[in-house]
């Protein structure tokens, strides 16, 4: 494992901690898209099916369990916690997330490495993760007031993807010289989706102003 990969995983973990902290400490999930969070539950469940069939390392196993557990915890908070659920911007979280599932699944059926249940679902999880942030970005665009924790959450989530791209470059040229087209292309698409957000995030940070995305 190289430093970019580790840094990527840590920013991913950190983004989740920031989100859980926001929800737990402020008892509010305003500005957070439940649809994106539900998609992440599906992403982790379909990607980590090999949790009990293939051991990579203790690090991988622990991280997989943490990602599955925290994604469930976030969805639970937003749906069932009696205070938190009242802060959910249901009317603004309008993205039809179910429409992302079918195209990703069809694409995974068409483009994969091995035609096995596990491999197709693993591929599906990569395609779905690439677009899972869309409901969140749409919600941010509709929000007048983006609080710092929400902005930071999305920032760290985007940073994780950017670091994974650097990890792939490093791996390809300096470690194993293997092409991994499916994770690469979906990862690049995913990173590109953050470009606009990053632009306004950095702009607001430079100007010491509150983050606001143009409609």
């Amino acid at each position: 494992m190289n430093l970019f990969r580790l840094a990527g995983d840590m920013t991913h973990l950190f983004s989740i901690i920031v989100l859980l902290l926001k929800i737990h400490a402020t008892k509010s999930c305003s500005g957070i898209s439940l649809k994106t969070q539900e998609l992440y539950v599906i992403v982790f469940l379909t990607r980590y099916l090999d949790l009990f069939t293939r051991f990579v390392s203790l690090y991988n196993t622990v991280m997989k369990i943490v990602f599955i557990g925290t994604s469930f915890a976030i969805v639970w908070y937003m749906r069932y916690h009696k205070v938190v659920k009242q802060t959910y911007n249901k009317d603004e979280d309008t993205f039809k997330h179910y429409f992302l599932l079918l195209p990703c699944f069809v694409l995974a059926l068409l483009l994969h490495n091995e035609f096995t249940t596990m491999d197709v679902l693993w591929t599906f999880s990569l395609y779905l993760e690439a677009v899972a942030i869309l409901p969140q970005l749409v919600l941010l665009q509709q929000s007048r007031n983006i609080d710092n924790l929400t902005g930071n959450y999305v920032f760290f989530l985007g940073a994780y993807r950017g670091l994974y791209v650097l990890n792939w470059i490093y791996r390809y040229f300096l470690q194993d010289h293997r092409a991994r087209w499916i994770p690469w292309i979906s990862g690049l698409v995913q990173t590109a989706l953050y470009a606009d957000f990053f632009y306004y995030y950095i702009l607001s940070w430079k100007k010491h102003e509150k983050l606001k995305l143009p409609a």
């Binding site: 991913h12 991280m63 490495n113 194993d176 293997r178 991994r180």
Partner: peptide, 10 residues
């Protein structure tokens, strides 16, 4: 395979 190699990532 490509798949096996890529699956050590999260």
């Amino acid at each position: 395979t490509e798949t096996q190699a890529a699956k050590d990532e999260l």
